[in-house]
């Protein structure tokens, strides 16, 4: 019974990690149609922001929840102004440009800080599920992931900014005709996506091996989740995370991590075959 509880907790945690790594990409790729191959490096930058500011004496929670999203958000703003804004509507070109950006970021961080930095360890300690130990920090990651999903959904659903963003993504000339400056909305949306990714990087920092190349381990899963989710970015990413996270964790527990990854990828392939438009291409089509 306790073991079942532990496995259930792992599944929820696995889902939360997928939500964390994909929600920023859902905004940038899902809404804005920019194939951001530097997404993994945005995560890495967020993790570095947390690690470096914590080592410099900043409170860990402040580093994770405030410093990381602000640093990566501002970096995203810079990237949008210098590179991305010339490439809207040119899907393949964004891919090339952001791939170059990712190489540049890995090289830059290595040059500045070397291949290793002293990481921060997870705070909060552990709690017991029967005779088993589980990490309290995972509870925090789950809470942040839930808050991110809820937050993005609420902003898009209830605020004027959200309405304008949705309108601009759907039909930029029409939005412009109604007095919105699409350029500024694009810029802010990209920065928002980057900030969400930065926050995720910060949350992952205490439980990941923080190194310049760490982004590579996350980027494929992030894209699979967002593509699997489909057009409604919040509902879609949430559902896809739930599906893939559950499969990955259960199979990994039953067999080995290798088979777990294989199972996740096979599930993704089958799903894309059956639902080419992602989950929300068929179900929950009117959601966000």
């Amino acid at each position: 019974m306790a073991l079942l509880g532990l496995i259930l907790f792992n599944i929820i945690n696995g889902i939360a990690v997928l939500v964390l790594i994909s929600i920023g990409l859902a905004v940038i790729y899902g809404m804005m149609r920019i194939i951001n191959l530097a997404h993994g490096e945005f995560l890495m930058l967020g993790a570095y922001a947390t690690v470096l500011s914590t080592n410099a004496g900043v409170n860990l929670w402040v580093s994770i929840l405030i410093v990381s999203p602000i640093v990566v958000g501002l970096f995203g703003l810079l990237v949008e102004r210098c590179i991305i804004r010339f490439l809207y509507g040119r899907l393949i070109d964004t891919m090339l440009a952001t791939w170059g950006l990712s190489l540049f970021m890995i090289g830059g961080i290595t040059t500045l800080f070397g291949t290793t930095v002293e990481g921060v360890s997870a705070p909060l300690g552990a709690f017991n599920i029967g005779p088993y130990h589980a990490s309290l920090y995972s509870v925090f990651s789950i809470a942040v992931a839930a808050a991110m999903l809820g937050g993005v959904w609420s902003v898009l659903r209830f605020t004027k900014f959200g309405l304008i963003v949705r309108a601009t993504m759907q039909n930029p000339p029409m939005a412009a005709a109604l007095g919105v400056a699409p350029n500024r909305i694009y810029m802010l949306t990209f920065a928002l996506g980057a900030a969400l990714t930065g926050l995720a990087g910060g949350v992952l920092a205490p439980v990941a091996g923080v190194a310049p190349g760490m982004g590579a381990a996350y980027i494929a899963k992030a894209f699979i989740t967002v593509i699997g989710g489909g057009a409604a970015i919040v509902t879609g990413s949430g559902l896809a995370s739930a599906l893939f996270g559950t499969i990955d964790q259960i199979v990994t527990f039953q067999t080995t991590p290798v088979i777990g990854q294989v199972a996740l990828l096979i599930a993704a392939i089958i799903m894309i075959r059956i639902l080419p438009q992602g989950i929300t291409g068929r179900f929950f089509r009117r959601s966000l």
Partner: peptide
Amino acid sequence: RQWGAAGM
């Protein structure tokens, strides 16, 4: 890291 976080 995760081993430590789980209190192990």
